[in-house]
Design a protein around this nucleic acid. Structure first.
Lengths: 340, 340
DNA sequence: GCGACTTCTGTGAACGCTCCCAGTTCGGGC
DNA sequence: GCCCGAACTGGGAGCGTTCACAGAAGTCGC
């Protein structure tokens, strides 16, 4: 019985069995709370587990069950955006609570460099997780393709442009953008500009399309400026450009609250009063929106619900249900504050 | 050879071996890039891997190697704080980059409800991770104790009050608070208040202690207000209380930038000009600091470096090195902006 | 008193890897 | 021609579980 390799100090199911005077099988039955275990055996096993300090070896279990009871969340954001995007936290908590209720463990994997991509792909396909939720994937994202090919149950939050075969949840960006632009027009604004971002994703394109639609004949391409990120800094840059090309504008739709916050500071610097001279609206209803002066009118995005729904899509697939491949769109609401 | 159970569609190392016309052992050697593999065998195996679409089963590997090449990050924050704390993102990226370089996978586990605690504990002790970094643990945190007892290599970011035996990295909150308070005094302020938070952790207590120390004889307990969270909302509440009890104050040290941002809005509402009437300083040098009007003078916290250092402490333990049990303190710097 | 259940238990056989030992082959050096 | 070490390969054993099956013991109705 002498151990030939490392003595392996950890207690195994056999140690528990020996201590409790029963067999492996019975211990396993107790561990998995199956029926057909006598009360005496159960208590003896439970005591033994406590005495030898046993904890189940996950690797051995996963090997035979082919499941890990874990679901991955892939966050693939450039540095700055990840730090700023206020929705990610809410989405994450929504996912976590849905998984938690189903007794699945959420494990978040961040991709921050090219090195990370291969490692994460291996982690996912290697069986560490049973399913995966991907947020903010973008066109050409290699991880998305790895997942699509591997056939692991998955769901996107937000629709990636070029990956088919995976369900997703999102909001109807186009309608929301159209609605808030219309409301802005209804306040009497006539020369409305837009700071657009994220045009490499559906979400960004749809916000722009909704804006265009709302303006109809009045649309003027000169009043749209495209910036690279949904960030405060991009908002500053975008607003400067807009003010320079069209100093006569009287309304601005920023594609995110962070952009709007940046735009607001530029307007203030330029001596334009908001909302008296220029009406300004954002998108997201993030923490930003209530902290600017004046607070922002914006589109409320149900971030927590988005996460929860995506997690539920993965769980349903794990139960073997057919969830279809289309998108699920959750409702947005316009929040009218003082900035427009 | 007929499979008796589920057909198990996935290719195994045996399939690869058969295809390449070599043995399991040789395939394994190629997989782990060991020496003593002939060029012919290597190319044959690589081709076979590609042909059968083989990916290594992590569970089987972990079972025999007793390692997972993964390190956990435990985030245990109440809802609101988690969403607001701007440092968490930077810490996370710091940890990730250090682990990534050492070819370890970071998996983040969030604890958001009591249900989560037991599951996360099982996940950690079950062998899913080789080590763990804990951020923002607080007194009595059960996860901290589970980790301490299990003996799994770990490191804290920020010092927990009641857990010994685990190394940690942090900043010298007391010195930093003293320094910024002194700078505030040097601008001629005489009645300086403080909005204190997080007094259930060392960090919060130390910031208060540093403030008290700097004031010396001039310290006046009436000028300190304690709030529950490091949040914008708490800053609003705290500042209202301070203004009511001591309308004559001319300086405020807020224990975080978020608190300071809340305080700033209250001061503005009350018609006090910052910095003319009241000098205001924060703590963290977060995204908040540069976006208030005026931008905040504050203490720069090296969040990314904190994360990186904590990860390195775990990696060192994984290599079998002795890292000691004390704390590592990284330097802070005062950033002087317009608010004081 | 016997068969048919129900309840409970033990054990062999995987799961898919890595590790290690025992070969086998090959090329020099004497 | 022989020996020896280096280079390479195959395969048995084992990691710690779960699963399926066989069987033991107890209960019940007739």
């Amino acid at each position: 019985m002498a151990a030939r390799r490392t003595p392996s100090t950890r207690a195994t199911i056999n140690d528990v069995a020996a201590r409790a005077g029963v067999s492996r099988g019975t211990v396993s039955r107790v561990l998995n709370s199956e029926v057909y275990v006598s009360e005496a055996a159960r208590t003896a096993v439970e005591a033994a587990i406590h005495e030898v300090g046993y904890v189940r070896n996950a690797a051995a279990r996963n090997l035979v069950t082919r499941r890990s009871q874990a679901v991955g969340l892939i966050v693939h954001e450039p540095h700055s955006l990840f730090l700023e995007d206020p929705n990610i936290g809410s989405i994450l908590l929504g996912i976590n609570s849905a998984l938690s209720e189903a007794d699945y463990q959420l494990v978040s994997l961040v991709i921050d460099s090219d090195r990370d991509i291969a490692r994460v792909a291996e982690y996912l396909t290697g069986g560490f997780v049973d399913g995966v939720v991907i947020i903010s994937a973008r066109a050409g994202d290699p991880i998305g393709h790895v997942i699509a090919e591997s056939g692991i149950p998955a769901a996107f939050v937000g629709h990636p442009i070029d990956i088919e075969g995976i369900p997703y949840v999102g909001i109807d960006n186009r309608s929301a953008a159209r609605a808030i632009t219309e409301r802005l027009m209804a306040t009497g604004r006539r020369r409305i500009g837009m700071i657009a971002a994220g045009l490499d994703r559906d979400s960004g394109q749809d916000r722009l399309a909704g804006f265009t639609e709302a303006l109809g004949d009045r649309f003027d391409a000169e009043l749209v400026v495209e910036v690279p990120l949904y960030s405060y800094g991009s908002g500053v840059d975008g607003m400067r450009v807009l003010l320079e090309t069209r100093p006569d504008l009287d309304g601005v739709f920023a594609a995110s609250d962070a952009l709007a916050a940046g735009a607001l500071d530029v307007l203030r610097e330029a001596g334009r009063s908001v909302p008296a001279d220029v009406g300004l609206v954002g998108f997201d209803d993030s923490a930003w929106a209530v902290r600017t002066q004046p607070p922002l009118s914006t589109v409320h995005q149900p971030a927590g619900a988005l996460g929860r729904r995506a997690a539920e899509l993965v769980l349903a697939q794990l139960r073997g249900e057919d969830v279809g491949l289309g998108g699920t769109f959750l409702d947005t609401a316009i929040v009218w504050r003082a900035s427009a």
